[in-house]
Computed example of a mutant assay.
Amino acid sequence: MKKSLLHLFFFLLLMSNLSAQEYVAFEKPIESTLIGNRSFTNENGSECTLESKSIIKILGRGYGEYKGKYYFKNDKCSGFISSVWFAAGEGFKEQNIKVNPKIYEINNARALKEIEEERIEKKIESQKCSYITNEIDVFDKQRIIRTKFEFISEDLAIQLYAKGSKKKIVFGASLELGCASPYKTNRSKVMVMLENKDIITFYHSGKLDCGEFELWGNVSNSEITRLTKSPIKAIKITGTDYYDTIEKFEWSTYFIDKLKCFNPK
């Protein structure tokens, strides 16, 4: 197991061990004096009231939603209390400092857990097929599929389109490239380089488009298989006037995740 994964494992283990608690315990309870009359809701849901100058025992410091509060108990009440509500007894400052490393570990573990949960959620979401159109044409009885545009980098979004057995990948680029041209003398193209060094080239098969740059490239079943073999390393887009190469991707596994959407269940 890699070192980073090992750290994550121990942090998540720590979180599971602490999930039943809501505070980090002091080494010993600190007897303190309540300031003013206070009403509390006990852990069992019952209401209780403590008079000013009642003695309470501070057992530890809260975390998460109880950040900045302290867990206390006495014969009548228990719960979380702000530090401004009590006069801390001897040893409180030292105990408060000693729990700092444990509080840090808990907060760090929670952050790692949230990051991992977000990563898993994004992975699940990335593998869903988000169709704008997925229907059978009433005239020719062919299925028409169109997915929504999804960004794989800051300047490039991709859409999948199919009618019957004809499949296209649409590249929408927010770059200064000129027009998307289908003419052989100046035909626009997109070259996709994968991490395994395979290169697949798509030529514009749509109409001349000099508005927002959209290149419609035909894709064969064999090319679909090749595109799903490896993440994207680079994409070069050539318009009528300029070309640009993209090498930084937020979603380099787009084709691996999404080309199955050509075949809806």
Results as ranks from 00 to 15, higher is better:
1 M>H: 14
4 S>R: 12
4 S>D: 15
8 L>P: 01
8 L>Q: 12
8 L>K: 12
9 F>N: 07
10 F>I: 14
13 L>M: 13
14 L>T: 08
17 N>S: 15
17 N>V: 10
17 N>F: 15
18 L>E: 09
18 L>D: 05
19 S>Q: 11
19 S>G: 03
21 Q>S: 15
22 E>I: 00
23 Y>G: 00
24 V>T: 04
25 A>I: 04
26 F>S: 03
26 F>N: 01
28 K>H: 10
28 K>V: 09
33 T>F: 03
37 N>M: 09
37 N>F: 06
48 C>W: 02
51 E>D: 09
52 S>K: 13
55 I>V: 10
57 K>N: 14
58 I>A: 10
58 I>V: 15
60 G>E: 09
61 R>A: 06
64 G>S: 08
65 E>W: 06
65 E>A: 09
66 Y>R: 11
70 Y>F: 14
71 Y>T: 00
72 F>R: 08
73 K>W: 02
75 D>N: 15
75 D>L: 14
84 V>I: 09
84 V>M: 09
87 A>L: 13
88 A>V: 13
90 E>W: 02
91 G>S: 03
92 F>P: 00
94 E>Q: 15
94 E>Y: 05
96 N>V: 00
101 P>S: 07
102 K>V: 07
105 E>C: 09
107 N>D: 13
111 A>M: 06
111 A>G: 08
113 K>R: 14
113 K>N: 12
114 E>C: 05
116 E>S: 10
118 E>C: 03
119 R>C: 04
121 E>S: 15
124 I>A: 08
125 E>W: 04
127 Q>W: 05
130 S>H: 07
130 S>Q: 10
133 T>L: 14
135 E>T: 15
135 E>V: 04
135 E>N: 13
136 I>Y: 08
137 D>W: 10
142 Q>G: 04
144 I>S: 06
145 I>P: 05
150 E>S: 12
151 F>E: 05
153 S>W: 00
153 S>L: 01
156 L>G: 00
161 Y>H: 12
162 A>Y: 06
163 K>D: 07
165 S>L: 11
167 K>W: 06
167 K>R: 12
168 K>W: 06
175 L>V: 11
181 S>C: 14
182 P>S: 09
182 P>Y: 06
187 R>L: 11
187 R>H: 08
189 K>D: 07
189 K>I: 05
191 M>I: 13
192 V>C: 08
194 L>S: 03
196 N>D: 13
198 D>N: 14
202 F>K: 12
203 Y>F: 13
205 S>L: 08
211 G>M: 02
212 E>R: 11
213 F>S: 00
214 E>T: 11
215 L>S: 00
217 G>M: 02
220 S>N: 10
221 N>S: 13
221 N>P: 02
227 L>M: 15
228 T>N: 07
230 S>Y: 09
232 I>L: 08
234 A>T: 14
234 A>K: 14
234 A>W: 05
236 K>C: 07
236 K>L: 08
236 K>E: 06
237 I>T: 00
243 Y>I: 02
246 I>K: 02
247 E>W: 05
249 F>C: 02
249 F>I: 01
249 F>E: 01
250 E>V: 11
255 F>M: 04
257 D>W: 00
263 N>D: 05
265 K>L: 04
